[in-house]
């Protein structure tokens, strides 16, 4: 499940347009890594593309190639944006169930492509899990549906 809370106000918004597009491709890739992307996820990504003022907002969803995406990510030198992207990748991959092998490898490779240590990716992943746990606790405390 694609999870992109507050992404418009994240460090990703400080990136240049081609780099923003690369980030969206990475998110699109991880959300369909085990099959196909559902229409609601495609809609979220297309909406995000509009918010990031990217033209032709749906074309980036087609023909997603891991190698090409990782290559594009290697042009991101903004460390804060890189860490934010890893965070959103982890949120998306963790939302439904535990990370599968393909997701672990893609997140690790994406981190490396953006010059982040795997240890940093692991810390970000743990942070994401803590956030999800906090959300679950909030559901219980505030009796949310």
């Amino acid at each position: 499940m694609l999870d992109t809370k507050n992404i418009e106000t994240s460090y990703l918004n400080n990136l240049e347009t081609p780099q923003k597009l690369s980030c969206l491709k990475a998110l699109a890739y991880i959300s369909q890594i085990d099959g196909h992307m559902d229409s609601s996820e495609a809609y979220i990504l297309a909406t995000l593309a509009k918010k990031f003022k990217l033209t032709d907002s749906r074309t980036f969803l087609q023909n997603l190639d891991e190698g090409e995406i990782l290559d594009e990510l290697s042009h991101i030198s903004n460390k804060k944006a890189a860490m934010d992207l890893i965070k959103y990748l982890c949120f998306t991959a963790q939302a439904d169930s535990d990370l599968n092998d393909k997701e672990v490898l893609f997140i690790g490779h994406a981190a490396k492509a953006m010059n982040l240590d795997v240890q940093k990716a692991a810390e970000i992943n743990d942070f994401v899990i803590e956030c999800l746990m906090l959300e679950e606790k909030a559901r219980e405390i505030f009796e949310e549906e």
């Binding site: 092998d101 490898l105 899990i129």
Partner: peptide
């Protein structure tokens, strides 16, 4: 919620090891 929390707690601190193995 309790089951989900247990599942999430189990998922912590496994990323790096899994990545290295893979």
């Amino acid at each position: 919620i309790s089951d989900k929390l247990k599942d999430l707690a189990r998922r912590r601190e496994t990323f790096k090891v899994n990545y290295m193995i893979l």
